[in-house]
Design a binder for these strands. Sequence first.
RNA 1: GGUCUCUUAGCUCAGCUGGAUAGAGCAUCAGAUUUCUAAUCUGACGGUCGCAGGUUCGAAUCCUGCAGAGAUCACCA
Length: 594
Amino acid sequence: MNIEKHISSCAHEALRSLYGDVAAEAVQVQKTRKEFDGDYTLVVFPFLKQSRKSPELTAEEVGRKICEMCPEVESFNVVKGFLNMSLATSFWRELFCGLVLDGGFGFGHKGEDRVMVEYSSPNTNKPLHLGHVRNNLLGYSVSRILEAAGGNVFKVNLVNDRGVHICKSMLAWQLFSDGETPQSSGMKGDHLVGKYYVAFDAEYKKQVKELTSGGMSEEEAKKEAPVMKQAQEMLRRWEAKDPEVYALWERMNGWVYEGFDKTYADMGVSFDKIYYESQTYLLGKELVEEGLAKGVFYRRDDNSVWIDLTSDGLDEKLLLRGDGTSVYMTQDMGTALSRHDEFGFDKMIYVVGNEQNYHFQVLKLILKKLGYDWADNIYHLSYGMVELPNGKMKSREGTVVDADDLIAEMVSTAYDMSKQMGKLDGYSDDEAMEIARKVGMGALKYFILKVDPKKTMLFNPQESIDFNGNTGPFIQYTYARIRSVLRKAEGMGIEVPAGVDGSFVPAPKEVELIKLINDFENVVRDAAAAMSPSVVAAYCYDLAKEFNQYYHDFSFIREDDPAVRASRLAIASFTSVVLDRALSLLGIEVPERM
RNA sequence: GGUCUCUUAGCUCAGCUGGAUAGAGCAUCAGAUUUCUAAUCUGACGGUCGCAGGUUCGAAUCCUGCAGAGAUCACCA
């Protein structure tokens, strides 16, 4: 339940009975800060004009009234203009019982709100890198969060599988590969294709250099380089569905998809539908006609079509080339429309890097101008770039952090560290690898998701990923520890009850845990509203930290009093359930031991 | 140049719709294990919340200006 809201409306009632008309917005109830006594705090400054008393006297007066009117509020104290209220321990006990009974926090029920989330959206000419990792983890986590908050979520991926950049890899493979395949080389398909993309670039540079040393300007050389002309010719043949080119394209993309599937599986992300740009790139042309008919767009002498957005503080934007072919914006408009027709979304979320902020601003605006009001339901979940200690990732300088390498590195580090600490003693290789996989991926996912999506984040391969402190493994460890206690209890024949009985008087630390557990529902709602997994990450950390303190100060199976022991085990058990649920929203798995 | 975003401890980050003495982790230093997992816990050290104004009883938070960093303004996607 939302206790703040409840206390807030109690306070509102009390204020009204004292001072008459009081605006609900003026009533602000917040959690009492740890350094003060109390559970919830009412700020009384806004009511001084009506009370005509000092802040302290006003708070006293309101406090007495609330105690009188609201049975949950047991006592209060006043510090300056702050009224700190304490709730009865029986209230917390009953709250915990209610949570256990409810049990699910509404999980597992698909809501009414139809939400489409597009993320990942890779190019098929090279393997995924660190930037994609942030995108994928964010997209997946946000989907989970929205689902938990009651959305009917549909995850989609729009694969950029066509274009001259794809042809570059294909051409280089034809020229230099001697027929190399993933099978013949043992190389992962996406990496193999990426290798030829790099090979193209090398050859291209070589040719440009030759041409410029022959006296040609660099600009011209870039256009005239034979491999570039060949790549463009190949794109034309692809568009004409030339059987030979098409077959090669399908074959090489197939290799890439096999590779991507592996990376996606490793990251634990999935999609409900995959769109291919080769099937959608012609969409949107009828919208251009529509825009022209409505006078929203205009045609220039060279037959190209534009929209003038200067009155909205933006620029003029091209929508159709002079030769009648469409551009990125046109495709995206068409894709959005067809998705809306097909899926009927209440919300469409694009998880795309912040370098495309302008694109999405324009996309929404154009759709609005065409009269599609649902454009208001389009959200660009814009996330910041991942930077390395020496700046941005640059493929030319070989500073790109490859996703597969990173994953392998994380898991092997987790393995080595676990081994060193003797955590893997007595486990089979498979069990040990499974623990290392969960912990290593947990570290990576938490590290990336704990940062506010919109912020540029720094990734230091040597130092950034930690397993202590505010990290994924810290939270996983808390979970594993609880599970260990519960296993031992079971082994000793001690029953772990789901809830607590009427004799249970929660200690202050237990009240803190109950409060936090109760907060989970609000946290999910807030995270969904902000589309920010970092809210959930912070919650996981708070809960784990709180529990670790509890664990340190209290006994569980060592406790002699059976009733007390049972209550503690119940709290521990339920904490593990919430930790599991919360981490699952980040796509992080929990190990039963580590 | 226009538009947008970011700037909080040595480092990486929290601080949401304005509220009390700005919080964590890492790093540094000092402690805690006969006892349920020490990947833990306790403490110390560390701040001109980029700068300057403004609104307010009250500003890291809202507004304006300035500085620094980044993105974008393609007949690329």
